[in-house]
Design a protein around this nucleic acid. Structure first.
Length: 549
RNA sequence: GCGCCUGUAGCUCAGAUGGAUAGAGCAACUGCCUUCUAAGCAGUAGGUCGCAGGUUCGAGUCCUGCCAGGCGUACCA
């Protein structure tokens, strides 16, 4: 529907102005009286053409072809052009939706462009918490969105298996292990305190006995670090799998060092003239690209800062051939965006090659009271706990009903209590109900199972409520496209709720299966179309579309 | 101090690239199950879009200042 209008308007635009108008804005009017779709294009041209908007709108309307698909083209308000489609056109579109299915719902805007989405990338030093879960839900949904709109997507988890944090984990486990061997060993000041650390120490002892009891940490560090972070990584992987989030690749930070990527990346920047030495340290001149200050990448003591492997990692992504990089970070890392953007530009790429999506941390409440979370003290609610309590579908939906950069309060008590009246069930229920109708229809004489898929029905039989549903369905491709281009999966969530919100009252008011064969066929077709769209939307969100509930 | 994000109904949040009379869910109250699923439906309410200016045909949306909350501002990760 919107696609057709977009083409028609573009043609008219070329006639109006030889240079064309560029992308023409198409809106969904707030009121039904304003037509099915609308464009404010004339108002935007008023200044350039030095004519009143309504006058421009009139001229524009004259240039529009294919008028037969509109039942009304109206100039309204300050200069809106409102389009109302004919029933025949809408009915044909619905038939296409039913027969072409996903092909009709999706539009190839990506044209196979290679995009990598890196998300979660939690340190393998403990279980995933709720914030990671939110990142996982958003990243997976975004990946689905972009896949459905023609992008070539790879999902990657960056494993911070080098550096201070995993070392600290190893040391924490070492201390607990020593204690369990009856040896007094000081627990590291910034060590990890969670129960899982005790678990790791116990497991280690089970495997190795007390054969390490006479060792210093420096002698045994690799044993402990490797053992601990690999266990944690396996746990993270399992949590994500159970959450329904599967990664294509897992990139190890250690490999960046052993491959020589880190050294090469710095050499590369040096050749390009963005590296300098100052007070014994090696710096990256990020101010060249708008960062507040230059950044150290090799410290006075010869150690790399965390920034060095990050540079190498992003360079590595580019060398792998990705045309666009999406990083999903916790909002507390927003301060790193300028320096990462500087890296991208220093490597010769346009700044828009890297898009950083910030996911706000999740604020956890328990019965209205904030729960203090501290990873170091081992006090935090894990994704696992919430997922086990309210289920992966509800958890994901919850994370996806809000813009990713908005603060999110999750009251764990409320989330549990509301598990049966959560919006996700509202949407899933619509899907299940339609399936139930189909089951009933196949039992009824005259309706062969799946016959509604042929698109053989008479759209003229639809009443107002049904036409409203038809139009809503035909807007889905536009919503999907918009959500993909803006990287905003929550738009799909809202659309899903709106669609279900039209279907349930309709279901309640009208019987689909009636004595009238033609009417029944038409209604089954409409239900089929709704089911197709619900299924597609839920798939994008990573949520199940159950046939029974 | 400086930078980024947020401020919309009692609560949680949408609001599309600057468009027409600012929306939904939850919570509250009242009704509806011999019917294709009551995880549903129908009805009832709520607003100085943080405050003050500005830009223009038009501002919740853009700009400036202020207020409030969060985060960041390391040769930590």
């Amino acid at each position: 529907m919107e696609r057709t209008l977009r083409e028609i308007l573009a043609q008219a635009g070329e006639k109006l102005l030889a240079s064309g108008l560029g992308p023409i804005e198409i809106e969904i009017p707030k009121e039904e009286g304003f037509g099915d779709l609308s464009t404010p294009v004339a108002m935007g041209l008023a200044k350039a053409l030095k004519k009143p908007p309504r006058k421009i709108a009139e001229e524009f309307v004259k240039l529009i072809d294919n008028k037969n698909i509109f039942s009304k083209v109206e100039i309204a308000g300050p200069g809106f052009i409102n389009f109302t489609f004919t029933r025949d056109f809408l009915s044909d579109e619905l038939k296409r939706l039913i027969t072409e299915r996903d092909l009709f719902l999706t539009e190839n805007v990506g044209k196979g462009r290679r995009v990598q989405i890196e998300f979660v990338s939690a340190n393998p030093t403990g279980p995933l918490h709720l914030g990671h879960g939110r990142g996982a839900a958003v990243g997976a949904a975004l990946a689905n969105l972009l896949k459905e709109t023609g992008f070539n997507i790879e999902k990657e988890f960056y494993v911070n298996d080098a550096g201070r944090q995993v070392r600290l984990l190893g040391l924490s486990v070492f201390a607990k292990y020593m204690a369990s061997c009856g040896i007094d060993y000081p627990f590291p000041e910034d060590g990890y305190h969670g129960d899982y650390v005790d678990g790791l120490a116990a497991e280690f002892k089970e495997v190795h006995g007390d054969s390490f009891a006479d060792k210093q940490f420096d002698e045994a560090s690799e044993n402990f670090i490797d053992f601990a972070y690999k266990k944690m990584l396996a746990l993270i992987k399992k949590d994500l799998e159970d959450f329904g989030v599967i990664f294509d690749t897992w990139q190890s930070e250690r490999d960046l060092y052993s491959n020589g990527d880190v050294v090469q990346a710095i050499d590369d920047l040096r050749v390009r003239g963005y590296i300098f030495e100052h007070e014994g340290a090696t710096w990256f001149r990020s101010t060249e690209f708008g960062d507040d200050k230059d950044r150290v990448i090799i410290k006075k003591d010869g150690e790399y800062t965390y920034f060095a492997p990050d540079i190498a990692y992003h360079r590595n992504k580019i060398l792998r051939g990705f045309e666009e990089l999406v990083d999903i970070w916790g909002a507390d890392h927003h301060g790193y965006i300028p320096r990462m953007q500087a890296v991208i530009q220093a490597l010769g790429l346009p700044p828009e090659s890297l898009r950083v999506l910030l996911v706000q941390l999740v604020n956890l409440l328990k019965g209205g009271q904030p729960v203090q979370m501290s990873k170091r003290a081992g006090e935090f609610i894990t994704l696992r706990e919430v997922m086990d309590d309210i289920g992966p579908d509800t958890t994901k939906f919850l994370f996806l009903t809000r813009r990713s950069d908005s603060h999110l309060d999750v009251d764990i008590e409320v989330a549990k209590a509301q598990s049966s009246e959560n919006p996700v069930f509202y949407v899933q229920y619509a899907h299940a109900r339609i399936n139930s109708i189909f089951e009933k229809a196949t039992e009824t004489d005259g309706y062969v199972a799946g016959s509604q898929k042929s698109g053989d029905f008479d759209g003229a039989l639809y009443n107002d409520e049904e036409m409203r549903l038809v139009k809503k369905l035909l807007l889905y491709p536009m919503v999907l496209r918009g959500a993909a281009l803006t990287h905003e999966p929550h738009r799909i969530t809202f659309y899903m709720q709106e669609l279900a919100g039209l279907f349930h009252p309709y279901y309640h008011k009208y019987k689909v299966i009636t004595g009238d064969v033609q009417l029944t066929k038409a209604r089954l077709a409409l239900c089929e179309a709704i089911k197709i769209v619900l299924h597609h939307g839920l798939k994008v969100l990573g949520v199940n579309a159950p046939d029974k509930m």
